[in-house]
Simulated scan of single mutants.
Amino acid sequence: MRLKTALLAAAFAVLAVPASADEFNPAQKAEIETMIRSYLLENPEVLEEAFGKLQDKRREAESAAQRQAVSENQNTLENSSRQAVIGNPEGDVTLVEFFDYNCGYCRHANSDLQKLIEENPNLRVVLKEFPVLGPPSVEAAQVSIAVNTVAPDRYAEFHDKLISSENRVDGAAALAIVDEMELDRAAIEKAMDADNVQTTIEEVYDLANSLNLTGTPSYVVAGNAYVGAVGFDTLQASINEATCGETSC
Rank of each mutant, 00 (worst) to 15 (best):
V143D: 00
A109F: 07
A187R: 13
D179W: 02
E119T: 15
L113G: 12
M192K: 13
E118A: 15
V138T: 14
V147D: 14
C106Q: 05
E182C: 04
N209Y: 07
M192A: 01
P89Y: 06
D179M: 03
E202S: 12
T94G: 05
D206I: 08
S165M: 14
K115V: 03
A140E: 02
V197W: 00
S165P: 05
R124T: 06
R107D: 07
Y101N: 07
T199R: 14
L116D: 07
D184R: 03
P89K: 01
C103E: 01
D184G: 07
L162D: 03
F158W: 08
L113S: 10
S165H: 03
L175G: 02
D193R: 15
V150L: 05
N148Y: 02
F99D: 12
A172L: 09
A173Q: 10
Q198Y: 05
N196L: 15
D193W: 05
H108G: 11
A191S: 13
P135T: 07
V204N: 14
Y105D: 11
D92M: 00
P136D: 03
N122V: 06
E202Y: 03
T216M: 02
T214P: 04
F158Q: 06
P135K: 08
A222Q: 04
S210H: 12
V221M: 04
K190P: 04
V143W: 00
S210N: 12
L183I: 08
